[in-house]
Design a protein around this nucleic acid. Structure first.
Length: 986
RNA sequence: GGGCCUGUAGCUCAGCUGGCUAGAGCGCACCCCUGAUAAGGGUGAGGUCACAGGUUCGAGUCCUGUCAGGCCCA
């Protein structure tokens, strides 16, 4: 028997057929080497300034605008995994919209002001010993010096992060980013403030803050250090105003005891007792009326035993119990103050709600008595409760920690710390002290002076959310809720995912007025001026004047110049809102003092729609199409952009809010800060394209699990796609496309008959482009990712490319059939690179340039200047669907034939297909054979699939097929007709 | 403690308004190819849909509760 299976024959007269094949060849490497090649791409893109070039293209082609706006990350530290996802998602939006033919500019921004930077800088100054010198400077000079350091710090990290974001291959206007500390930005922020002032929603009120007596300054949470401290802890009896109503509340209607019961509270800050205005109970807890050694008191049932033991009570008898809500409204007498005091600055305060029991859900049963001493001027909870219940904000403590004139005479002017013991003494002497002891607890201290901090009321600036906005008569909260509730079609907001709506609504429902002032150095000064009588002046015109001044000089000017200078652009005579004394000139501008507060940084970032979008793209660019941030920004940037936007524009500054979740560990738990992954190591180990491929695959709306393993998996997927591109490129090595005048190898569109394989695959591409672009359009990047991946794997690698391999390798190089397939390959690669370009922006460009056989020195050819190809307009026969279904069946039959017939190599098989319905007759049987991977196909009656064992037939030494035409050729070799023709073997 | 969200094969996820034997990719197992080769192809095994109740002719899908996790508040 002849050795039909001889591969490369050693016989001298037989040619080495491998050399006669058109085997794939390409310079597009299998190994991506992203670590080196991505930075090279960035360099190339920057050289031609791709970002600006796209803008030019958009202008000349008049592409429709689609405005997207970057929420500013904080300019502190390196970017981390959270930024990685955030920035990639944003870039997918920018690049996919550009691909779709929109003009989608993107200005990256940074939040530069604020406490974290100031705190870091101050810590550095303390450590280097420079802060001592600063303390000796006048306030303005000291703040200027601090601000100089902060600015340097912010600049340093902004640059670092921008570099890392560029390394992530994101496309943005990195040459002109927005920085909240830039003078123009500062001016634009103040312009928003001015409009809110104009709308009448900016006001000044008292609010308790952490206060350092030592430094006479307000402190933020981050500036507190918790240290153990021993305090005097007291249990105080507050006598009921009306005994009978208390007994009634406990259900004791007749036979009431004759004694007056008391409410027992516990506190570790006896110095706040003069400011007590109420007692809080939890409405759902159970409270007991207890006789302890003869006295009758009220306290939480659960704490009776503990409290009795503390006070060494011998006889304890619970007389009755009731729920906290029954106690609400009962009055009591303050142990040492007759009538509720009125704050010095508000002598007309309504005190009718004072000295009563109130409900509050923050009451716990962990310490104390279940009844909470409430002083609205000295506690955050107390303050909120006070606002709700109509209590005055009473704070009798001055900035130096001493009492003012409104407290009982004996302690006026006294330090609160000294007063502790005196007050306890009064209570003991008057029989109101149930128990007292020294108590060790963790207490907040000023991080710098290490002295204990107190809660004290100070005047702050607010944006009122329930005050009517002048232009609409509706309050901001109501406007915001309305925008959330309204349908998208009626100008309402769109949420992706939809539950963002509920979340934002919940937060708006419960939010208090927005406190926009801070007592720090590193921020945008609130341009308020103080009159000699200590009242404040901040009018629309005065704010606009300072805004203009800041645009010209930057906000450092606030600390360097005098009020009259800062108000250069202000004419009080023409400001109807100015205080009368200022308007008439009775108080000159030179008599004013500067306010000391700076703006909440959220006000700055919340004004970015004005400071960035309107400023650069005009009024029509707002509302912006999309804001995209983590779900924490429902409370942050989303809400705090929405409120000023509504106040100034009367409508939200954005149309759609897209949120993503947070990075969590492999176990689904919060990512520890020391988790490792520095962004540099990720770039080095995986490359940006792999990281981007990973981000694209995520269900970003929920928590995202991160682990090294997942990056590796993404790398595998990336390689699949890369190899598919590489294989197509490698079969285009000898192919020159026809473009313009240049006549290349392209086959005319009209030559793609609907039943040819190439028409089928081009039609498949059209369908893919449809789905991918639709997925991009609706921000379903994960879906786009799956579509692209499956197309590469299934449609191309497994089906089409496997099928056309034979003709690409074995057909005569310039045969029509081969050139038509190459034409299809060229189009596919061209189209696929574009669809991939928003995700794999380096690799897509690399492949695109390889497709165009571009010289490495060429910088002009760049896929990111191209738009998507939506269709190749190839008409595929509808019967292809039946063919593909048949293919699946054939695969199963072939698998069975392995064991049944012993056919292991599918080229040893032929297929006979029953075609009673005449579906397959119109197809080329060679196409079908290639598609099924077998040597030949024939049609027969019936509808069964039969596997034929062809192992007894000769095998073509060149194509390895047994197609029935194989025979010994005149010039030697056992070849099929096609192969004989290809090598001209006669 | 409150608001919003999540919990489906070993892993990552699809499963729309409740309705055929719960799908995909990865991984795994077995096989083919060695002319995409640190590649390519085929086949297969994996699930009491977090748990417990309830509504319904019928629930992964609706309701209630429990547990676990995340974000934001307190």
């Amino acid at each position: 028997m002849t050795d039909h299976n001889a591969g490369g024959s050693k016989s001298p007269d037989k040619p080495d057929y491998k050399k006669t094949l058109n085997l794939p060849k390409t310079s597009f490497p299998m190994k991506a080497n992203l670590v080196q090649n991505e930075p090279a791409s960035i360099k190339r893109w920057n050289k031609v300034d791709v970002y600006s070039k796209i803008r030019e293209l958009c202008t000349t082609e008049n592409r429709p605008k689609w405005t997207f706006h970057d929420g500013p990350p904080y300019a502190n530290g390196s970017i981390h995994l959270g930024h990685l996802m955030n920035k990639c998602l944003k870039d997918f939006v920018v690049r996919s919209r550009t691909l779709m033919g929109y003009d989608c500019p993107f200005v990256p921004g940074w939040d530069c002001h604020g406490l974290p930077i100031e705190h870091k800088v101050m810590t550095g100054l303390v450590e280097s010993g420079k802060s001592a010198k600063l303390e000796t400077l006048p306030d303005d000079a000291r703040r200027t010096a601090i601000r100089r350091e902060c600015k340097k710090y912010a600049e340093k990290f902004q640059k670092l992060q921008a570099g890392q974001m560029e390394r992530l291959l994101t496309q943005a206007d990195y040459k002109n980013p927005y920085l909240t500390m830039a003078p123009a930005y500062e001016g634009a922020t103040l312009e928003v403030l001015a409009r809110l002032v104009e709308q009448g929603v900016v006001f000044r009120a008292l609010k308790p803050v952490h206060w350092s007596i030592d430094n006479e300054t307000a402190l933020a949470e981050a500036e507190l250090e918790y240290q153990d401290r021993e305090d005097l802890s007291v249990f105080v009896d507050f006598e009921a105003r009306d005994a009978a109503s208390v007994y009634t509340a406990f259900g004791l209607t007749d036979d009431q005891p004759t004694q007056t019961p008391s409410f027992i509270i516990w506190t570790t800050t006896p110095w706040t007792l003069p400011a007590n205005l109420a007692i809080a109970v939890h409405p759902r807890f159970e409270y007991a009326l207890v006789r302890m050694d003869g006295n009758i008191t009220v306290l939480a049932t659960e704490l009776v035993e503990t409290v009795a033991k503390l006070g060494n009570a011998e006889e304890v008898e619970v007389l009755a119990t009731t729920r906290g809500e029954a106690l609400v409204g009962l009055g009591y007498k303050h142990p040492f103050i007759e009538a509720a005091p009125k704050p010095t600055d508000n002598p007309d305060a309504d005190t009718s709600a004072c000295y009563k029991v109130l409900p509050a859900d923050y009451v716990t049963l962990e310490d104390g008595t279940g009844l909470v001493h409430t002083a609205p001027g000295h506690g955050a909870d107390d303050y909120q409760t006070g606002l709700r219940e109509g209590l005055p904000v009473y704070c009798p403590v001055l900035k130096d920690g001493k009492y003012d004139e409104t407290v009982p005479e004996a302690i006026r002017g006294m330090s609160i710390w000294e007063a502790n013991d005196i007050i306890a003494g009064w209570l003991r002497d008057s029989g109101h002290l149930f128990h007292s002891n020294r108590f060790m607890h963790s207490y907040p201290h000023d991080w710098r002076s290490k002295t204990p901090v107190i809660f004290r009321c100070t005047e702050q600036w607010f944006v009122g959310v329930d005050m009517p906005v002048a232009s609409t008569g509706t309050a901001l909260r109501e406007m915001a809720l309305d925008a959330i509730e309204r349908n998208t079609s009626e100008g309402g907001l769109r949420f992706v995912p939809d539950w963002g709506r509920n979340r934002l609504r919940g937060m708006l429902d419960s939010r208090p007025d927005w406190c926009i002032s801070r007592q720090r150095a590193w921020g945008l000064p609130i341009p308020a001026f103080i009159l000699p009588d200590d009242s404040s002046m901040m009018t629309t015109a005065s704010v606009l004047a300072v805004a203009r001044y800041f645009r010209e000089n930057g906000s450092d000017a606030w600390f360097q110049n005098e009020p009259a200078e800062l108000l250069t652009h202000y004419d009080p005579k023409n400001d109807p809102d100015a205080p009368e004394a200022v308007r008439t000139g009775a108080v000159a501008l030179t008599d004013l003092r500067k306010g000391q507060d700076i703006l909440d940084v959220w006000f700055e970032s919340g004004s970015s729609w004005n400071a960035v979008i309107r400023e650069r793209f005009g009024d029509d660019a707002v509302p912006v199409e999309l804001y995209l941030e983590g779900s924490d920004q429902h409370r942050g940037w989303f809400q705090l952009s929405l409120l000023p936007g509504l106040g100034v524009l009367g409508e939200p500054p954005f149309k759609t809010l897209l949120t993503h979740g947070f990075m969590v560990g492999k176990d689904g738990k919060k990512l520890s800060k020391s988790a490792g992954h520095t962004i540099e190591s990720l770039f080095e180990h995986h490359g940006a394209d792999v990281l981007r491929w990973w981000v694209c695959s995520l269900s970003y709306e929920n928590d995202v699990k991160v682990d090294e393993e997942f990056f590796k998996i993404a790398g595998e997927g990336y390689r699949k796609v890369r190899n598919t591109l590489r294989f197509m490129l490698s079969n285009l090595n000898d192919f020159e496309p026809s473009c313009g005048d240049k006549k290349g190898h392209c086959v005319e569109e009209s030559d793609f008959s609907p039943t040819c394989l190439d028409a089928w695959v081009l039609a498949e591409f059209d369908a893919l482009a449809d789905r991918v672009l639709a997925a991009y359009e609706s921000f379903q990047f994960k879906k786009a990712h799956a579509e692209l991946y499956n197309f590469c794997n299934d449609t191309l690698s497994s089906v089409y490319l496997a099928a056309v391999k034979d003709r690409l390798y074995c057909d005569r190089a310039d045969s029509f059939r081969r050139r038509r397939t190459q034409t299809a390959l060229w189009k596919l690669t061209n189209g696929l690179c574009r669809l991939l370009s928003p995700i794999l922006c380096h690799t897509a460009d690399e492949a695109y340039r390889s497709l165009h056989k571009v010289d490495p020195k060429d910088t002009e050819t760049c896929i990111h200047l191209q738009t998507a190809i939506r269709s190749f307009r190839a008409a595929a026969d509808p019967a292809w669907q039946a063919v593909l279904t048949k293919r699946d069946e054939v695969m199963l039959e072939l698998e069975k034939s392995k064991s049944a017939l012993g056919i292991e190599n599918v080229l040893d098989a032929g297929i006979s297909i029953g075609d009673d319905e005449g579906v397959f007759a119109k197809f080329d049987l060679v196409d079908l054979a290639d598609l099924f991977g077998v040597s030949r196909v024939e049609l027969q009656t019936g509808n069964r699939i039969e596997i034929q064992d062809l192992r007894h037939e000769p095998r073509c030494e060149r194509s390895w097929k047994r197609d029935g035409t194989v025979k010994e050729r005149a010039r030697g070799g056992c070849l099929s007709d096609r192969d004989a023709e290809a090598v001209d073997a006669g």
